[in-house]
Amino acid sequence: MISDPSAKIHELWDELADLPLAETRLSIELLFSRISEWVGADDAFWIGIARVQSEPHAANDVLHGWRLRTAERWITRPEYNAEFIRKVLAHMERDPGMGVRKVISEAGRFRSYRQRDGFIDFKAFRQTPQYEMYFKKGGITDRIWCVSPVNRDAESLFCFDRIRRRSHFTLEHERLVAQVLRGIKWFHRQLLLNHGLLVGKTPLSPTHRRLLPQLLSSKSEKEIADALGLSRATTHKYVTDIFRSFNVSSRAGLMTLWMGGT
């Protein structure tokens, strides 16, 4: 643990705020690595969650009308490509474990948990297929969950894992994670926007996500096309698609959205 957490947290918030809007991956890697260093986590990931059904239609839904739409991992491996992540999220939606069910059931408020703090029956969880598939095979010995609502239909979920360790996260570790993440609602908002959520319930395609950060820079469409190896016509089509997805008509409108405007 760090000796003066408030000072370090404020420094981290300033670093995140100073990064260009286009540097989404750099921003989330900074957040992953700094928090992981402070709490002794070996891996981390983020999931963007969107509400697709409201009451009464969500009453009998396995995830109460919510869906796990997109994800980012800290430690990237070749097998953790976009298709792999999509399949994992789809499987978790069809057959969510006890932890996922509990986290989603309490949507609408900022919340944090430790996997072994009693928020689920961990002994019962160890008998489930989800424990075998995701925890035992992956060597996960403990997890901190932290979820920040951004609006009534979108939430930002962070998880920090210990891998093959005897020691578990403490209450102080959980509180530190919560303190960091609760103070940057603007960051959760931009993270969801960068994945095509918040204003819509369907995430952007990988191609559109590659182009989106370029639109938040000062590059012209020609420069963006050259940077991505696309024709100008194809680039313009993708730009138009992105504007339509975010219900804006220009890059100025897109920038306003990112800066918290309407």
Rank of each mutant, 00 (worst) to 15 (best):
M1E: 09
I2W: 07
K8I: 02
I9E: 05
I9P: 03
H10S: 11
H10T: 02
W13R: 04
D14F: 01
E15M: 10
E15N: 07
A17S: 08
A17P: 02
D18R: 15
D18T: 04
L19H: 09
L19I: 05
P20M: 11
E23H: 11
E23W: 11
S27M: 10
L30F: 13
I35Y: 01
D43M: 02
W46S: 01
I49N: 05
S54N: 11
P56R: 13
G65L: 02
W66K: 14
R67W: 08
T70K: 14
E72D: 10
E72T: 07
I75E: 04
T76N: 11
P78L: 08
A82N: 11
E83D: 12
V88E: 04
V88K: 10
L89S: 10
R94D: 10
P96Y: 04
G97P: 05
M98F: 01
G99E: 04
V100Y: 02
V100T: 13
R101M: 05
R101V: 09
I104T: 06
S105L: 07
S105R: 06
S105V: 05
E106P: 03
R109P: 06
F110Q: 11
R111A: 10
R114I: 01
Q115Y: 05
D117Q: 07
K123Q: 09
F125I: 05
F125W: 10
R126C: 15
T128F: 14
Q130Y: 03
Q130S: 11
E132N: 07
M133W: 01
K136A: 08
G139F: 07
T141E: 00
T141L: 06
I144Q: 01
P149I: 04
N151I: 05
R152P: 12
E155N: 04
E155T: 01
S156F: 14
L157E: 12
F158C: 12
R162S: 01
H168W: 03
H168Q: 01
F169K: 00
H173M: 00
R175I: 03
L176V: 06
V177H: 01
V177G: 00
V177F: 02
V180C: 06
L181S: 03
I184Y: 11
K185T: 07
F187A: 00
F187W: 11
R189Y: 09
Q190Y: 00
Q190K: 08
L192R: 11
L192V: 02
H195C: 00
L197C: 09
L198T: 04
V199G: 00
G200M: 00
G200A: 15
K201N: 09
T202L: 05
L204Y: 12
S205C: 07
P206V: 13
R209V: 08
R209F: 03
R210A: 09
P213M: 06
P213R: 09
Q214P: 11
L215M: 15
L216F: 08
L216A: 12
S217V: 06
S217F: 06
K219L: 13
A227M: 08
L228I: 10
L228S: 08
L230P: 13
A233I: 15
T235A: 13
T235Q: 08
H236K: 15
D241A: 15
D241P: 01
F243K: 14
S245Q: 15
S245E: 13
S245N: 10
F246N: 06
V248G: 04
S249I: 05
R251H: 06
A252I: 10
G253Y: 12
G253T: 09
M255Q: 12
T256N: 08
W258I: 02
M259Q: 14
G260P: 03
G261S: 04
T262Y: 08
